[in-house]
Simulated scan of single mutants.
Amino acid sequence: MTAPAPGTLRDLASAGVPFLTGVRPLRGDPATRLPWRTPLWAATGTTPDPRSAAELPTHAERFAAMVTALVTERRAVPLAPDGGLEHTVTLAAALGLSTVAWTLWRDRETPDPLLALHRFADLEATVRFEPAAVRVRVPMGRRHADLLRGGLLADVPDVVWLGGRTLTFSAG
């Protein structure tokens, strides 16, 4: 892991944001080392939840795997001349995958955006553009059932980037 940019932890602390990190802070950063076998630091004056602190290395590994998958293995805009659009689309994809994972699986397992990516990577759908609607037909099966149960196959009216068309979903 690399250190955050100078001033990052200071800015977080001054904004009242509690933090927990496995990255060694820079000199003068408002962080206190926790008494763990693995070096961890928390915002000075805060007491992190011991369970969260214990799970930090696992979450950091999951995050690194997600970044690898989205940034190196499945680039969103591979031909973009600069990284601005790529960064924005990757962030939107990570947020979308996280939302799907949370919506569908939070009650039965740890929501994981990378798991959502793997589970839906081979989901095929047929898309048909019509004057008033864009129709998406998702094949029946476990993923369709998950999406339906989670309420993610509801029609979306007046989608701006589809020219005001309604986005509809059906099974097929």
Rank of each mutant, 00 (worst) to 15 (best):
R149H: 12
R24S: 07
A3L: 06
L56W: 06
V67E: 04
E86W: 10
L34H: 04
A125H: 10
V67T: 05
T126G: 04
H118K: 13
D146P: 00
H87W: 13
L20N: 08
T46N: 06
T58K: 11
M66C: 14
A132K: 11
G172P: 05
W41H: 04
P81K: 11
P131T: 11
D11V: 06
D49M: 08
T38F: 04
M1N: 14
G150V: 02
T168Q: 13
T90F: 00
V138T: 04
S14F: 03
F19R: 13
S52C: 15
D107W: 08
T126S: 12
V23G: 09
P48V: 12
L12E: 07
L153W: 02
G45V: 01
L26V: 07
A53M: 10
A3M: 08
H144P: 00
G151T: 10
V67K: 06
V77C: 11
V156K: 00
P25V: 14
P131V: 07
R106C: 02
P35Y: 01
V77N: 05
D146T: 02
V159K: 04
W105C: 02
P48T: 13
A43Y: 01
D49Q: 07
V138H: 02
G45A: 00
L117A: 14
A154N: 11
A43I: 01
A76L: 12
L104R: 01
R106D: 05
A64H: 08
V127A: 08
T72D: 10
V127T: 09
P139E: 15
P78G: 06
R33L: 08
T103P: 00
A92M: 07
P30M: 04
A15T: 05
G164P: 01
R128L: 13
V23N: 13
M1Q: 15
D82K: 14
D146Y: 04
T99Q: 02
T99C: 06
G84R: 15
R137Y: 05
V100W: 00
P35D: 03
T103K: 10
R149F: 05
V71I: 03
A125I: 03
D107P: 10
W102V: 08
T88L: 14
G7M: 13
V127N: 00
S98P: 05
R24I: 05
R108P: 02
L148I: 02
V138C: 07
T68N: 13
A121H: 13
M140W: 12
P113N: 03
D146F: 00
P25S: 10
R149D: 10
A64S: 14
A53Y: 05
A65L: 07
D146Q: 11
A31Y: 01
L20E: 09
W102L: 14
P48N: 12
A3P: 12
H118L: 10
L104N: 00
G28Y: 04
A171K: 06
L123W: 10
L91V: 13
T166E: 06
P78K: 06
D155L: 02
F129A: 11
W161A: 10
F63W: 08
L34P: 00
L26Y: 01
H118M: 06
